[in-house]
Design a protein around this nucleic acid. Structure first.
Lengths: 187, 187
DNA sequence: ATGCGATGTCTGCTGAAGCAAACATTGCCC
DNA sequence: GGGCAATGTTTGCTTCAGCAGACATCGCAT
């Protein structure tokens, strides 16, 4: 799989079948994936710490950000779940919490009574705008800054390659979210 | 912060202070971070689906992998927690599950009765080695493959830049795990 | 108009993970 | 040799998110 088309550059070294099983545990591919996991995990942890200083969980920040970016500051629950890392069930409860804190309100849709909109309040916008500068500075310090350190091209190169991976792995994000859905964990 | 040394390439566009607040929600830095989150999230989801087909959760795979990579197939609980994305408490329970399934055993240390080792069993090694080929193929298809598609240098470049970010953001991983610990979320 | 599948949201239940505290053990200082 | 802080592991409690199912609503075909 993945080898149906002739591969531009074959993986160096002996093929999987020729190696001892325990040797596969040190495969270069695991290293790349591990690097990605560690880098993202570290950034996520630092981000979570900082958002917590503003009284926000990462998912709450994400919801407030998506709502604020939306033209009318409002989004259907389902669309929110599509744009975030949550299921519709998860969105229901996150919005519950945000409503309790007055950062978001629910608003009925007058053309379709099934849908309810989540609307960001002034307090929600205020909280987000209070946290954003710190958050941007954090990304600058730990992600974008290091990439600029080696010359101006590194950042652009990284973004270009990262976008290529993203577009492969998350087909929905490429076009207008019309692509096939990403599989969900089963067990 | 991050700007103490003169910056090689200043961020283009007006500074944060000069922009309208709502404009900060579209900052380029959020885009990069979002790209990273989407790419990693997509890969993690696909990985979780595939590991589930082998009856494993991602953390269980991680634990089995670390134990198998260890010279004697054995690691202290604390070291396991340092190498994975779990707290010691989390490691306790994951190992509990793995012990219940016969993939791991606990073994007392005869020189320090506080420490208990987690030891991977033959069944654990077998399960890991059954799942590894599929897992490597998945990483090849969705991460490494796309990066090779644009010529042989892209993969190396990506790994080099990614490692730079990782080394900045996870100081412990650079040397012999002797660095300062990563902060944990507070709220 | 009426029935019916599709769609949007919410709720009961479950499993997983973190924090804080409990407990056991060690090494050290006196 | 006896406290005593530090270290290693586990446990109680809580929070959070997913799945599956319930419920309401919509749009369409007849």
């Amino acid at each position: 799989m993945g080898l149906m088309t002739s591969q531009p550059t074959a993986p160096p070294g002996p093929s999987d079948a020729r190696r001892s099983p325990s040797e596969a545990a040190d495969d270069e591919r695991l290293t790349v994936m591990g690097l990605l996991a560690e880098a993202f995990g570290g950034l996520a942890t630092r981000g979570a710490v900082q958002l917590a200083e503003h009284g926000m969980a990462p998912v709450e920040f994400e919801v407030l950000l998506r709502l604020t970016r939306s033209p009318l500051g409002l989004l259907r629950m389902t669309d929110l779940s599509a744009q975030t890392s949550l299921t519709t069930s998860g969105v229901t409860r996150v919005v519950d919490r945000l409503v309790d804190r007055g950062l978001v309100t629910r608003q009925a849709c007058d053309t379709d009574r099934r849908t309810t909109y989540a609307v960001v309040t002034d307090a929600g916008r205020a909280l987000l705008e209070r946290a954003l500068p710190d958050h941007l500075a954090l990304i600058e310090q730990w992600l974008v800054g290091p990439l600029r350190a080696g010359g101006g091209e590194d950042l652009d190169t990284f973004v270009r390659l990262l976008r290529r991976v993203r577009d492969h792995v998350v087909p929905c994000a490429t076009a207008g979210s019309g692509g096939p859905a990403l599989p969900r964990p089963a067990d």
